[in-house]
Nucleic acid binder design. Structure first.
Lengths: 153, 153
DNA sequence: CGCTTTTCTGGACTCGTTCAAGCATTCGGA
DNA sequence: TCCGAATGCTTGAACGAGTCCAGAAAAGCG
């Protein structure tokens, strides 16, 4: 698959551009984050190992730390859930989180630009980011619970 | 202080209205949450103990769980920070969080109502809440870091 | 080639939070 | 006013996610 190849090269370019050394674990982790759907650290470790044989868990943490520091991946951490990562950076999108299973879905910014980025009053803070999380129940879990209700009755 | 007395009775009334039993720990925790500024569990435990002598940490957790379940307090959990609680419930306000010290400040909703509550596309989710967190650096920390810069130079 | 950064092994450790079992309370009804 | 059942509290232990540590080995890149 030439697609994979090209993605990998793009990642390598991005790493270099960010002033980071290019290593197998880093590339594998970037791929894993991009291909996964808001994966957990563990998911990333598994996916990365599938690519390059073996990587230590600590290396995965280190790499994710370096990558998110450089802005190549974004760390999201919905309340009550372990950290998740995503490759979609630089655009102002938000998240839908399932109260039930913790699934995360991207959703484009409601207003598109300024209003959702500016608090009414900054109270002296130097604001640099607005994070929006919509809480709800995902389609799967909604269905799940309606099935259970049917069984219980 | 008659003010305290009255607040306490209001809390008791709220507890009853929510169908919760009235116990010393519950009242003390409610007071502590209301008087603190987005306190941590530990802050709440300390404040509650100051009121009624002693409460176990677990009781504080249980009570906070019950209270937030009943909608009498709200749990907020900014990424990378332990859980905090606030008594201001029912209105649609958001939070400013300091990247540096973790301080939380209330901020009224930008739009006031609907727009900030509706995602562009709900992707099949049954959305029940929109949480907005503005990330930045609080006045204190801004000052702090500018002082440090001065010292280093 | 050699210096520097990164990764590895592997473990110990912190922190916030939750679980489990028994004891103590609250509160509605008699 | 008192009693009994449901509920809440206590103690103590455990958990999960994540961090940090150290030294040794490996790899990138000038």
């Amino acid at each position: 698959m030439p697609g994979h190849q090209r993605e990998e090269e793009a990642d390598i370019t991005r790493l270099r551009a960010a002033g980071l050394r290019v290593t197998a674990p880093r590339v594998a982790v970037m791929e894993a984050v991009r291909e996964g759907d808001h994966p957990l650290v563990d998911d990333i470790a598994v996916a990365a190992r599938r690519r390059i044989g073996s990587v230590s868990t600590q290396a995965v943490y280190d790499v994710l730390h370096a990558l998110s520091g450089a802005g190549l991946v974004r760390r999201i951490e919905p309340a009550g859930s372990p950290a998740r990562f995503e490759a979609r950076v630089g655009d102002n999108h938000h998240h839908l989180v399932c109260r039930c299973c913790g699934a995360v879905t991207d959703v484009d910014c409601v207003v598109g630009q300024a209003p959702c980025l500016e608090p009414a009053s900054a109270a002296g803070y130097e604001v640099d980011e607005a994070e929006v999380v919509f809480w709800g129940v995902c389609p799967d879990c909604t269905e799940m619970s309606s099935i259970e209700e049917r069984e219980t009755s």
